[in-house]
Amino acid sequence: MSTTSTSIFSRPANWIWALCGVLALTFPFYETDPAYQQIGVYTLIFVACATSWNMFSGYSGYVNLGAAVSYGTGAYTLSIIAVHTHPNNLPGSASEFWLIPLAGLAAMVVAVPIGLIALRVRRHTFVVITIAIFFTFQLIAINASFTGGTGGLSLPYIPWAASYFDVPFYYLALAMSIFAIILSALVRRSRFGLQLLAIRDDEDRAMGLGVEVGKVKLTGYVMSAFTIGMAGGLFALLQGQIYPQFVFDPLFDISIALMCFFGGFGTLVGPVLGAAVLESSQQYLTVQYSNGSLYLILFGGLFLFVILFMPQGIVVFIRQKAKQRSDQQIAAAAAAGSNA
């Protein structure tokens, strides 16, 4: 990735970012159907989560299949506080929104001991441990009394008209996505990001070169939990009711990973693209056909296709094709020049 451009708009990629930003900002104005606005909210929640997941797993190569631990922790933290304090009675409406960063912080706090245990082992085993820890959390949420068990928790009612109910959620999710993208970009360009990438390429060598691998991995893991926890909190507010099997959902874990691999594992744009395409199409298919099984087949099939024919994800695939083409053009031009 070359980052030597002098002006922000000298590269076409930046124009695409700007265009997407404008489209995303104005989305609730040109799409006023609440059903589709809700698709927008869900898509952005997944953009934020996938970007944040990729910031650790994509850069370091440690595939975390327990991202729902952070998501569920955020959702439950916010819900439990909201149920016990009823902040609607405080001055200002919808003051639960101030609990969202708290949900993120709670997810970070929970991520520290998990990281300390799970990051002791190398990649393959790490994947399996994250799955095991995920199921432990799901089990606690289902069986403990403070989580409301299988009945879940109902949040205080947010008194907004249905016509603009989703709009504040939309902008919050958008803000979260932008935050995640900027954070991921900053990490990628920092010394810390280089250390994560070095771990991905060769952990032993990175350690030999003086990277404090344990500290770097833990920091990355905990950082990525923050946005995912906030997204979980936002999801709880949007739903108004949470159940253990929906916030601690194995499909959430794998969807996030699929989105990143689909778009481009370890790239900045990949997770954004993957989440935008996959989540919006899933929501759209659910609204249109409400056939979950058909979706599973399509999703799985599409993913198999991408991973077998574009194993590094769509973004890298397009970049390579573009590079091949420009190389061919240069070669053709050189050949034409030497003939003349």
Binding site: G61, V63, L65, R123, H124, V127, I254, A257, L258, F261, F265, G292, S293, L294, Y295, L296, I297, F299, G300, G301, F303, L304, I307, L308, P311
Partner: peptide, 23 residues
């Protein structure tokens, strides 16, 4: 990335089979 990819590929296979079995 073979091992990491294998998790995802087999998961995708598992999703497809799950969908077929459900139907």
């Amino acid at each position: 990335e073979k091992t990491a990819m294998s998790i995802l590929v087999t998961y995708a296979i598992s999703l497809v089979i799950e969908g077929i079995l459900n139907i």
